[in-house]
Amino acid sequence: MEMNIFQIIWFVLWGVLWAVYFALDGFDLGAGSLLYFLGKDEKERRVIYQAVGPFWDGNEVWLITAGGATFAAFPTAYAVMFSALYTPLLLLLFSLIIRGVAVEYRNKHESPSWRAFWDFLFFLGSLLPALLLGVAFANIFKGVPINEKGLLQTNLLGLLNPFGLLGGLLFVFCFATHGALWVAFKASSPLSERAASLAKKTWVITLLLVIIFWAASFVTTNLWENYKKAPILAVFPLLAAICYLTVPVFLNKESYFKAWAASALTIVFFTAWGVAGLFPNILPSSIDPAYSLTIFNSSSSPLTLKIMTTVAVIFVPIVLAYTFWAYKTFSYKITEKDIAY
């Protein structure tokens, strides 16, 4: 197939969609995974649900759109990646299903056992996606053993290799920090302080994990090859590092929203680091680079990409505008009134 500019545009957009998804749903998933650690009583747990309630659904749409964009722009990559990662992907979907239902149903019936049931599912449905997404992306960064027919030459356990597990842990702790910062911003004392102090601890753990992850990526992945070819790309990991280091600065000033925003930008730039390193691969093969799915051998026709570009240019700014407005509208501190029965 001919190379064209739209393939590059859609590769960038593909990366942006994942980056925004991680930065937004990351805090929902993180807050959910901390439910038992932050919410000491019923009132505090309700605050945590309220903190994610207006946002989780819109945030999850970024995942749907990332999936849809992969299908539309790189159908071969979508087809091979999703069938090759069958079991982990279905586990991810089931986790997200129970997470969503838990948020929506937990406070719609007044019974302690009902609430305990959904609390557990909310926790599990938040923790598992973080872990699975981390494992999946670490494996994509590393390359998966797909053969010339796009068949995976390993099983689920093969994906749970050390680098994959490291990626999983990194996502869990990174999202936990991100979620704790959001709770610190949305809740009032004492939950707010507890979340902030927990964020400081998980921030350190995440820092250690990311250092190990980056060090390991020199050995296990080819991501840094692109950085040798185009050193300018180094702005992504650099910005990620700078943003990450400002998180504790804002935390100490109790500027929780700014700390959260710095954490969100860290996630965006970290994703940009990985995606830029992947280029032009979407799913690299660890067996032979010739079997890798790239934007050139797996893309849609120029006409489809052109139409999709037009749609994105018109509608993505609109989506961003009302999403921004909704965040602004719901950026208040949660009060007693908000969690009343």
Binding site: V61, I64, T65, G68, A69, F71, A72, A73, P75, T76, Y78, A79, V80, S300, S301, T304, I307, M308, V311, A312, F315, V316, V319
Partner: peptide
């Protein structure tokens, strides 16, 4: 793989 060029974009547009 076979029809994604036509079909995939409709799903992506639906989401957007």
């Amino acid at each position: 793989q076979y029809v994604g060029d036509v079909f995939g974009s409709l799903l992506a547009i639906e989401a957007t």
